[in-house]
């Protein structure tokens, strides 16, 4: 992350992606935000830019923020030996659609904990047993390899 002052106008923040592209956000002092993509041929010029309203910027930040949290959870895998984190989708044909988290009895049956539910771009951290699943939810689960395999089968409805 690189920061450059634009005297009289505002501030620009740059991010260079691993793929070598530069993205910048210009925060105008008037409150406007401008998102710009840099040209591949010319490292100094933006090839396209767009203004974002407050709502649009907030929505974008939410989506990016949720996936960021997920990335951090995935990082747990390396830190806690033997434990792994996976995202498991609740498909429309899952027996647990429209049923409560508690009904899965996942922890007692497989030893896996559901640490978050991702729903329509929002992350619901530490869901309680009363939360009701919908088709399209993604469950972030932590457990051992064998437990995780059992959990995936359980949610998919293959456990017999």
């Amino acid at each position: 992350m690189e920061k450059a002052d634009l005297p009289g106008i505002g501030v620009r923040h740059d991010v260079v992606t691993a793929s070598g592209r530069r993205i910048s956000v210009v925060s105008h002092r008037s409150g406007e935000r401008e998102l710009a993509f840099f040209d591949r041929d010319d490292p100094d010029a933006c090839s396209d830019s767009t203004f974002l309203t407050d709502d649009e910027a907030e929505a974008l930040a939410d989506v990016l923020g949720a996936s960021l949290m997920l990335g951090e959870l995935v990082g747990l895998r390396e830190r806690a030996a033997g434990l792994l984190t996976e995202q498991v989708a609740v498909r429309a044909d899952s027996p647990y659609v429209n049923r409560r988290l508690g009904d899965t009895e996942a922890r007692s049956r497989t030893g896996v904990s559901i640490v978050a539910v991702l729903r329509e771009g929002d992350a619901i951290p530490s869901p309680g047993p009363e939360i009701v699943f919908s088709a399209g939810d993604t469950l972030v689960a932590v457990g051992t390899r064998s437990g995780m395999d059992a959990f995936i089968r359980l949610i998919a409805g293959d456990s017999g």
Binding site: A4, P7, R12, S24, H28, D48
Partner: peptide
């Protein structure tokens, strides 16, 4: 649309 350009500062 050059506000984001690197030469602008």
């Amino acid at each position: 649309r050059r506000m984001g350009n690197r030469e602008t500062p």
